[in-house]
Write a protein that binds this DNA or RNA. Structure first.
Lengths: 338, 338
DNA sequence: ATGAAAGCGCTAACAA
DNA sequence: TTGTTAGCGCTTTCAT
């Protein structure tokens, strides 16, 4: 805790603080000899620049905030890791903001932009509307969104192509011979749900299968929600042979319900989930699942955002649409006898 | 992006910047009328104080850093959540630092203390030595450790009582009638491993069971490590009836090996793990496990650290020793017929 | 109870 | 290539 300042280094090296600053920031306008001498003194004195002074003067915090609904959920953790690694490699820091599923918290974290706690903010939460986010972007705050598309030219977004995702699931199931396929969706208002329903319907059409509203039921992306939704579905209709669950949590709920109802997977019912979480490999039969490139969604967006900060202008590409990939496991494979 | 400054508010309210600052910081030395008028203007102008200026002047960042080995591991995520919630409720922010299992990264993050990026730092990683950490503390930097005890009077620590943890496991197993119990430890140098071995030996003694070195094998806290270690163990000795695994990951490795070797759990072998991760409830039979109070370890330490920052002195309690709790499931319960 | 003024540590115009 | 100087926005003595 010695608290050496730039002026101390400057004096010892017989230069001005400005020159020391130039050396520290890798300016080209410094004589090689001078630079060496200054560096030498910096090392000798173990000088480390004070970040607060630097921030105030340069009007940059070199920090990004990431707002997630819940740090515990592996979905978010993976995205965070992608952001972290990219940001760190570009000399940025990452402030994790856990909104704990509370809208009020999300709004609170937005103020980090206004009060200059961070240079930019990445929202990975669903609850703020496009309009709310757009109005911040309009005011000049750097904002980005992961997980959905926001229709504002100043807001970069990275997300999965959910229409294609759903279609890929249905292709796989129809290939396996299924004609009666149910869709266990998430919250009906979630853009994920809307897009996936769209893809679901498209793929059915392409396969010449009529769409039945009775084969769609909404849950809340949780295991319990999946369990309940599946039971509701089943009470309406008994003859579907496959279920496309909005995520693996809901697929696990289906497993639970099937265990109770003595429905055997995959013989009587094929199941496909989304996210390919670790647990899908530990239940029997293992759950086929669409794996989203979460790490990539985080890292491309962080890169884009930092690039934007540095150029102080919006680069060409704003939307990063990534594709999920089906990982086929036993839950959706018919036995050979079939 | 209007960038209103404290001077703007001051002018409009016909007071000095000092008074506005007093109002903002809840100083008692402001006339009630004046305060009201200033507050009114602050609201009207939607003034939000610039954090950079505030930090520089007050020499506080109101930010804690948490250094973890890997944000993806649920063990760390739970601790982080505890820190986050406590810190936020005390108006602190949390900077997550993912060391990615690299010692060099950990050291890098330590510099956040020196360059005033954060006010204090919580290490949840194992690789920095007590000496290294102590020397920082000695220099006046605020540092805390989660997961192990560091013997320096200025470093608060929260951790699980690993001796008691191991003893509780062995009590449970001997109660079930086991006399030949193996211990699948983690890295042999890890303090967790050392303490648990100590508790393991103590409990055996108390139960009048001789300790056999051949029943101890080391792994690396991973599923694969557990798998390998179990096979090594088994090749040395075949007649143990129970395994205490250093964590649930290693217990999962035991499950994998047992499946291959046709050993039935719990009939031929009882298994107990540590951490009680979610996965323990999805394998069959479910894994009995010691649940550590991770969230609590994070929150008590954050509270302590912030308290220490505010008082600028070390309060009474430095060590927070918490107890794990056994969650008994089928993997360690003998069938009634036994 | 309030204001004036100094300055936290740094960088960036502008001069030289 | 280097130095001088003026702040970045805020808080905090010290007066009053």
């Amino acid at each position: 805790m010695k608290d050496i300042k730039i002026i101390d280094v400057a004096k010892r090296a017989n230069v001005s603080p400005a020159t020391v600053s130039r050396v520290l920031n890798g300016s080209k306008l410094v004589n090689a000899k001078t630079e060496q001498r200054v560096m030498q003194v910096i090392r000798e004195m173990e000088y480390i620049p004070n970040n607060m002074g630097k921030q105030l003067r340069s009007r940059k915090t070199m920090t990004l905030a990431v707002v997630v609904s819940d740090v515990l959920v592996s979905y978010y953790a993976e995205i965070i890791k992608g952001i972290e690694n990219m940001a760190n490699s570009l000399h940025y820091r990452v402030l994790i903001c856990d909104a704990q599923n509370q809208r009020a918290k999300e709004l609170e974290f937005l103020s980090f932009l206004i009060n200059h706690t961070v240079d930019a903010l990445i929202m990975v939460t669903p609850s703020l509307s496009d309009e709310e986010l757009s109005s911040y972007a309009e005011d000049g705050y750097r904002l980005a969104v992961i997980g959905r598309e926001v229709g504002h030219p100043l807001i970069p977004c990275s997300f999965t192509d959910n229409i294609t995702l759903a279609r890929d699931v249905i292709y796989h199931l129809t290939e396996q011979g299924h004609r009666k396929i149910a869709f266990l969706s998430g919250y009906s208002e979630a853009t994920d749900s809307i897009k996936r329903l769209e893809g679901f319907i498209q793929a059915l059409e392409e396969a010449g299968i009529p769409f039945e509203q009775g084969l769609v039921e909404n849950g809340d992306f949780s295991e319990d929600g999946g369990y309940e939704a599946f039971k509701r579905l089943r009470s309406q209709c008994e003859d579907f042979t496959a279920v496309f669950a909005a995520n693996d949590e809901m697929a696990l709920g289906v497993y639970k319900a099937c265990a109770e109802m003595d429905i055997s997977i995959p013989d009587q019912l094929a199941v496909v989930g989304v996210d390919n979480i670790r647990l899908t490999n530990y239940v029997v039969p293992r759950i086929s699942s669409m794996e989203q490139p979460l790490y990539m969604m985080g890292s491309v967006l962080a890169e884009k955002l930092i690039d934007q900060i540095n150029d102080n202008r919006l680069a060409d590409q704003r939307l990063f649409v990534l594709n999920a990939e089906l990982v086929v496991k036993e839950s959706s494979l018919r036995k050979i006898s079939n």
